[in-house]
């Protein structure tokens, strides 16, 4: 225990500075604006992640967001265990036919105002699986999407920037 504590003390804070927020997400819709406005300017966001058939690349990157380096919690963003607790649904993967129903119910159960973010190329466009018989395609074919974070997979920094820009862009 003492070794653990001394390690904690000598290591110090390892969290990176806040990344620069790009302005490349232009397509901010009315729904998103309204949602952020209702949620106290997005000072706190609860995310429910839905894996709708991804390669798990996106999930690895999301997991990395919680570590000491990126520390997504400092922005008031946290991951929750149930769609009923969530403000944001992040969806990854080209929606497979098996996950289509699951995604729909998760969307239906999320209380409004809610934001849907398509995470990764698969979710944004269908990616390399586009037009396959096993997938439905991009997330917007199943549920309305408010924002997209492209990349295959997007790096943790991309995701962080994307989420922050969603919040800050509407504040202006």
């Amino acid at each position: 225990m003492l070794r653990l504590l001394s390690k904690i003390i000598t290591t110090g804070k390892r969290t990176e500075k806040c990344p620069q927020i790009p302005t490349y997400i232009e397509e901010i819709g009315e729904n998103l604006k309204h949602a952020i406005h209702t949620l106290y300017g997005g000072r706190t966001l609860r995310i429910r992640h839905v894996d709708a058939g991804s390669t798990n690349g996106e999930e690895y990157e999301l997991t990395a967001l919680g570590n000491a380096f990126y520390d997504i919690e400092r922005f008031g963003i946290s991951f929750v265990a149930s769609p009923r607790h969530a403000d944001v649904l992040t969806v990854s993967g080209p929606v497979t036919r098996n996950m289509e129903h699951a995604l729909k119910t998760a969307y239906e159960m999320t209380p409004g105002p809610k934001i849907v973010v398509a995470l990764g190329d698969g979710a944004c466009t269908g990616g390399i699986w586009k037009d396959s018989y096993a997938v439905v395609g991009a997330v917007e074919n199943v549920i309305p999407v408010d924002a997209r974070i492209p990349g295959d997979p997007p790096t943790p920094e991309d995701v962080l920037r994307g989420l922050l820009s969603i919040v800050t862009a509407t504040r202006k």
């Binding site: 119910t105 239906e108 209380p111």
Partner: peptide, 9 residues
């Protein structure tokens, strides 16, 4: 809003 019980799909 009345929905189903959350069923994980």
């Amino acid at each position: 809003r009345i929905t189903d019980t959350w069923d994980c799909g």
